[in-house]
Simulated scan of single mutants.
Amino acid sequence: MKKLIMTFSLLLVLSIVTACSGGSSSTDGEAKGKDSITLKLAHTGSDSHQYQIGAKEFADLVEQKSEGTMKVEVHGNSTLGNEAEAIEQVMDGTIEMTVVAADSSLANTVPEMNLFGLPYVFEDREHVYSKLDGESGAKLLGLLDDKNMKGLGFWEVGFRHLTNNKKEVNVPSDLKGMKIRVQPAPVWEAHMKALGANATPVSFSELYSALDQGLVDGQENPLASIYSMKFYEVQNYISLTGHNYTPAVVIMSNKAWNGLNEEQQKVVEEAVAEAATYQRDFLTKQDEEIISELQEKGVVFTEPDRAAFKEATIDVKKALENQVPSDLIEEMSAK
Rank of each mutant, 00 (worst) to 15 (best):
F282P: 01
V62M: 00
G22T: 00
G153N: 01
F8A: 13
P111K: 09
N170G: 02
A312T: 15
D281E: 13
I226L: 15
D124V: 04
G29P: 04
A185E: 04
V299W: 03
G218V: 05
E311G: 02
D133V: 00
S21H: 08
E270R: 01
L10C: 11
S130W: 12
K65Q: 05
D315H: 15
L14W: 06
L175Q: 07
L41H: 05
V324N: 05
I238E: 03
K131Q: 12
G153V: 02
N198H: 07
T94M: 01
E96Q: 14
A271D: 07
S225E: 04
L260M: 08
K2Y: 07
G298K: 11
R181P: 10
A31K: 15
R181T: 12
E63V: 03
L240R: 14
L211D: 04
L4E: 13
G134K: 11
E206I: 07
N108D: 09
L132S: 10
T18L: 15
N261C: 04
T79S: 09
L152I: 03
F309K: 12
V267R: 00
N165M: 04
V90N: 04
D327H: 05
H191E: 15
S173R: 07
Y232L: 11
A210G: 02
Q64Y: 01
Q89T: 06
I251C: 01
K179E: 12
M252K: 00
L320F: 11
L132C: 08
A190D: 14
K32A: 15
A31M: 15
K131D: 03
L143V: 08
G151H: 02
L328H: 01
S292T: 14
E311T: 10
K297V: 09
T98G: 05
P172R: 00
M6N: 11
N164S: 03
G33T: 12
R125W: 07
S36M: 09
A319D: 02
H191L: 14
A210T: 10
L118R: 07
E274S: 11
H161F: 04
S228R: 03
R306C: 05
T284A: 10
I290S: 02
K2G: 10
K317L: 09
S104K: 08
K150Y: 01
A210I: 02
A84N: 06
M1Q: 15
S203A: 15
V171W: 07
I251N: 01
L175G: 04
K3W: 05
Q265Y: 05
K2S: 12
